[in-house]
Structure formats: structure tokens, C-alpha cells
């Protein structure tokens, strides 16, 4: 252990919800997108699932809203070290979308892509079983554009760069294919509890 002379750090909190190396950002919700926030209205938003599925399909805003509502209440964790507790997102479970297209048994991974062209890769197992959403509400209000509105992917058990803003679709693959940050050295999975920040962690 390389102790830093004179460093004590902030008061220790006994917070079992805080992954290693993270701090509680409190009321802050930093915005870290690397691209220009797109001017995307709900009427122009679409969400598609293609690749290794029986029937590729594209949903518009109203169609997507006919699927059963589902909410996430819990925590989110950013690779830059902040975590945010007790957030509330509303939308639809990704399971509902995946059920509608029929996932091939050969599918193991997905690339999520945004209306800006941003991409991120995920194991399919991280997107199923009630652990991922298409979210369009935050705290009961429409999701703000700078936070990914009209709708973003939400995979809260992984670092938040996996939760692609302005989500446009998923391509299901039988292999892993690095997305935008993953090509820039970030970890292929990004599990905050194992501190998988960078490739090799």
C-alpha cells in the first residue's frame, strides 16, 4: 500500500451500495457525453433490434409506449468515480423488446448504438432478466436531452457509459465487438463491483 503523506480523505461512510473506488455524487448528475447533444424529438426517435433475431423490428415512440411500463429505482455508477443513489427511471424493460423480436440461441453479445452514432458493447446476459431498460423518464419527468432523452438505454449494474444515450438500436451478435469507449481502452464489460474501468482490469 502506497500511503499518501498527509492524506486522510473525506469522512468514511459505511455504504454497502458504493462500489470500490467510487464516491457519492449526492444531488449532482454530471453529463459526460463526448458528442454534441442531438436535437432529437420523440417523433423522430426510433428504436430497432436487429442482427441475430427472428424478426428485426423498429419501434417508434408511440409503439414503444404500448409495451408494459417498467421502472428502475436504485443506483448508477460512472467510470469517472461518481455514483448516484436512489435514482428513478421509467420506461420499458428491454426484455419486452427482445421477446418481440425473438433472439436466436446463437446470440451472445450486443452492440448498442445511438442516434448520434455512439456505440457500446454488452454481453447479452447483461441486457436480459429484468436488468436493462429503455428509459424515457427520470424522476417522473421526460428524460432531459443532455441525459439521453428522448430515450436512453439503462443498464444500471454496469458503469454508466454502457447505458447509451439517445438509444437507436441493438445489434445482436455471436461475438463481442468493442464500441466507442471500448475502442478507446475502456473495459469490455465494465462491472463497477469488480472495478472493470479499463481493458485489463
Amino acid at each position: 500500500m502506497n500511503v499518501t503523506r498527509g492524506f486522510t480523505g473525506r469522512a468514511r461512510v459505511d455504504n454497502p451500495g458504493l462500489p470500490p473506488g467510487q464516491y457519492d455524487a449526492g444531488d449532482d448528475w454530471p453529463v459526460l457525453s463526448a458528442e454534441v447533444t442531438p436535437d432529437l424529438s420523440p417523433a423522430d426517435w426510433t428504436f430497432r433490434i436487429d442482427g441475430l433475431v427472428r424478426e428485426p423490428r423498429t419501434w417508434g415512440w408511440d409503439e414503444a409506449h404500448t409495451l408494459p411500463e417498467s421502472a428502475y429505482e436504485g443506483d448508477i455508477h460512472c467510470v469517472t468515480s461518481w455514483s448516484k443513489f436512489g435514482v428513478r427511471f421509467g420506461g420499458v424493460s428491454l426484455d419486452a423488446f427482445l421477446d418481440a423480436v425473438g433472439v436466436h440461441a446463437s446470440a451472445t453479445h450486443a452492440v448498442a448504438y445511438a442516434h448520434t452514432g455512439y456505440t457500446t458493447n454488452l454481453p447479452l446476459a447483461d441486457l436480459t432478466g429484468g436488468r436493462a431498460w429503455i428509459a424515457w423518464e427520470y424522476d417522473g419527468k421526460p428524460l432531459a436531452a443532455e441525459h439521453g432523452g428522448p430515450a436512453r438505454l439503462l443498464v444500471p449494474h454496469l458503469y454508466f457509459w454502457k447505458s447509451a444515450k439517445w438509444i437507436a438500436g441493438l445489434s445482436l451478435l455471436d461475438h463481442d465487438e468493442p464500441g466507442f469507449w471500448e475502442q478507446n481502452g475502456y473495459h469490455e464489460r465494465g462491472n463497477p463491483w469488480e472495478e472493470q474501468r479499463y481493458s485489463g482490469d
Binding site: 436487429d50 448520434t116 452514432g117
Partner: peptide, 18 residues
């Protein structure tokens, strides 16, 4: 430059990859 999906062409192009 790589594009994840062979189908989807974003209406606004993202900045080129690093």
C-alpha cells in the same frame, strides 16, 4: 471508422473515433 450496425445510419454523425 467502424459502424456497429450495417442497417442504421445515424441522422447526425458522431465525431470520428479516437
Amino acid at each position: 471508422e467502424t459502424t456497429a450496425s450495417p442497417v442504421f445510419v445515424p441522422p447526425t454523425r458522431f465525431a470520428v473515433p479516437g
